[in-house]
Design a protein around this nucleic acid. Structure first.
Length: 271
DNA sequence: CGTGTGCCCTGACAGC
DNA sequence: TGCTGTCAGGGCACAC
């Protein structure tokens, strides 16, 4: 269930065990996920020393002392398992250091693994198309105003567009719009300046809170079979169709379809 | 270009 | 118990 906070938590968890370590072995259990594994992945990564991990949008980056960076995406169902006791059916990639093993498990295989020249990461097409990081300095009401200017698409869909903001997914768009009191069907180009000024801090807050919730369980990652990025966050609207609005305004949470995906919102307080 | 649709894939769950 | 339908946190190709 990886969105930005889960990817961030995963990256931090992996870093605890992987940063500074030498990858002694890497093996693939099938030829592809969403796309084929890079043909030179095993050759490049075997014996490489990890020099750091980072996140861009919903991608995790494993930096090494080689001139290539290993980039993973968890898709809809991906997760890393640390020191798994038993192999699982959908462990498609496994890596080992001297002390630990890591399995990339992804039943639906919507994830990906890429190997990209480290000095040209920004030119990699999936990265080149990304908008600003929501937790970085460049997400501002002015940016959103500009990025959604004239757009007739619903603001919900605009915010899911990774070129508008990089890393927001279905859950956090629903949550941020709810917190900011913005109706998901409102056209992107028609969201008002005051609404955008409310929205930006709510985006930052909901993501930060979730990362903190996940981060607080990092200690558990030392446990065998530790699974990264999964933690119980309480959502205000996501998945709460039919329940009363948590603001106590008497509204009942509704679910609608937008772009083939569900949106939950309160018809009473989101305008 | 902006926008809308359908597909990739497996598993969980509800209803019969 | 087993079948069927629906849904799932993402991204992309393709059509207009």
């Amino acid at each position: 269930m990886p969105e930005l906070p889960e990817v961030e938590t995963t990256v931090r968890g992996l870093a605890q065990f992987l940063d500074g370590e030498r990858i002694s072995r890497i093996a693939l259990n099938r030829p592809n996920l969403r796309r084929p594994f890079p043909p030179d992945l095993v050759q490049v990564m075997t014996g490489a020393t990890v020099t750091g991990l980072s996140r861009r949008a919903k991608y995790g980056l494993i930096h090494t002392d080689r001139d290539q960076t290993m980039i993973f995406h968890l898709g809809m169902s991906g997760r890393w398992r640390i020191d798994p006791a038993q192999p699982e059916k959908h462990d498609h990639l496994v890596m080992e250091t001297s002390d630990h093993s890591f399995a990339l498990c992804d039943p639906r295989r919507f994830g990906s693994v890429d190997l990209i020249a480290s000095d040209a990461l920004d030119q990699w097409p999936p990265f080149a198309a990304l908008g600003p990081e929501p937790l970085g300095p460049d997400l501002s009401p002015a940016h959103l105003k500009q990025a959604m200017k004239g757009r007739m698409q619903a603001v919900k869909l605009c915010l899911l567009d990774q070129s508008v903001v990089a890393g927001l997914g279905n859950i956090y768009v629903c949550e941020a719009l709810y917190r900011a009191g913005i109706h998901p069907l409102k056209k992107g180009g028609k969201v008002t300046k005051p609404q955008l000024e409310r929205l930006v801090p709510h985006i930052v807050e909901v993501l930060t809170q979730s990362i903190r919730d996940g981060g607080s369980s990092l200690r558990d990652y030392a446990a065998p079979d530790g699974e990264l990025g999964y933690f119980a966050t309480r959502f205000d609207v996501y998945g709460r169709e039919g329940e009363p609005c948590s603001r106590g305004d008497g509204g009942i949470i509704r679910r609608i379809q937008q772009g083939g995906r569900s949106t939950w919102y309160c018809p009473k307080c989101q305008k």
